[in-house]
Simulated scan of single mutants.
Amino acid sequence: MLTTRPTATPDELDTTTGPVISVRDLDKRYGSTQVLHGISFAVEEGELFGLLGTNGAGKTTTVEILQGLRRPDGGSVRVLGLDPATSGDRLRRRIGTQLQDAALPERLRVGESLALFASLHPAPRPLDELAAEWQLEPLWRRPFGALSGGERQRLFVALALVGRPRLVFLDELTQNLDPVGRRRTWDVVRRIRDGGTTVVLVTHDVEEAERLCDRIVVLDRGRVVAEGPPAAIVGALGGKATVRFTDAELDVRSLRDLPGVDRVDRHGAEVRVTGVGPVLAHVGARLVALDRPPLDLHVAVPTLEDRFVALTQEAPS
């Protein structure tokens, strides 16, 4: 198996400080259509950062500008301290990219593809090390056309990491994967972040963003409509939790004085308690104290998907 030298060259050593990505007032037009309307955000070192939005929200255009593949029409962009519009070649040697519609020649073998991509970098990762890390050793001589969806995704991630990037872009990484492949790919993404690489995850999958990302930006029709940790964006809904359980004989008045409880209703044998804060814990503790612990106690809380739907249905300002 081919190995490559692990020593980094001075040109590849990145000593920039501050945000890994800084975007301020970014505009982009295609002809008479404006697709980005003054968006601003920053990505910090070591984050798993999500760029979340529906199809057509401007995610791919934004990422292409960040990689120097498209020029902005206004605003400022810095990636690893560089301007992608003027230093694109230099920048692309320092980042890794898994594209939304990535593909390789059907007959190109896994080992050949890794060697090819490694040849583009002055100090690539050792290929045997990379193959072992992403479980590609059994696939080394297998052609691309014979790989499953999950195997292809592992290969694309390895190709994105072969140049020792400080920053990697993953665009719609789990599209067309079955649920098992999707969960395994999420593990891959976490491993990249845990290995010290900053990750920008581009996705329209709300569950994916909520489960994986430290922070997210929500784009809608070329505008930033929310930014922050997923839990903080959900909290902006101001929504209340609803605890449900079955007890046909409970006197529901015994729950109305609990902390955070706004309302207690009965619907036949079902009891519904609406409130804020850790209302589930308070209700559960009271029912245990009353020696009436239910078997079906559960809670419904606002989700990132609820917030995402609300944000993307609002008219732009």
Rank of each mutant, 00 (worst) to 15 (best):
E151N: 04
D89M: 12
T86V: 08
R5V: 08
V309A: 03
G239L: 02
R221S: 06
A289S: 02
T7D: 06
P316L: 09
A123S: 10
T97W: 15
H267W: 13
P84C: 02
G150T: 11
P143D: 03
A241D: 07
F49G: 00
G181D: 04
D171I: 08
S40R: 13
L80C: 09
E12T: 15
A115W: 14
D83A: 02
G150C: 05
A131G: 01
E47G: 01
T54Y: 05
A131V: 07
T62D: 04
G145A: 05
E129S: 09
F144M: 03
L170I: 10
L13K: 14
D73R: 13
S119W: 14
G284V: 11
A209P: 10
Y30Q: 08
D251W: 12
T246L: 04
D194V: 09
E172H: 04
L80F: 14
N176R: 13
E64S: 05
L219S: 00
D27L: 14
A57S: 12
V218I: 14
V199S: 00
R93I: 10
T174N: 03
L155S: 00
F156S: 05
R307I: 07
D257F: 09
E129G: 03
H282Q: 08
E133Y: 08
R24P: 03
L173M: 12
V35S: 02
S87I: 05
G238C: 02
V217P: 00
F144G: 00
A123T: 14
T242W: 07
F156A: 10
L99W: 12
P165E: 04
I192M: 00
V200D: 00
A285P: 01
D14L: 14
D178M: 09
R193G: 00
G181W: 15
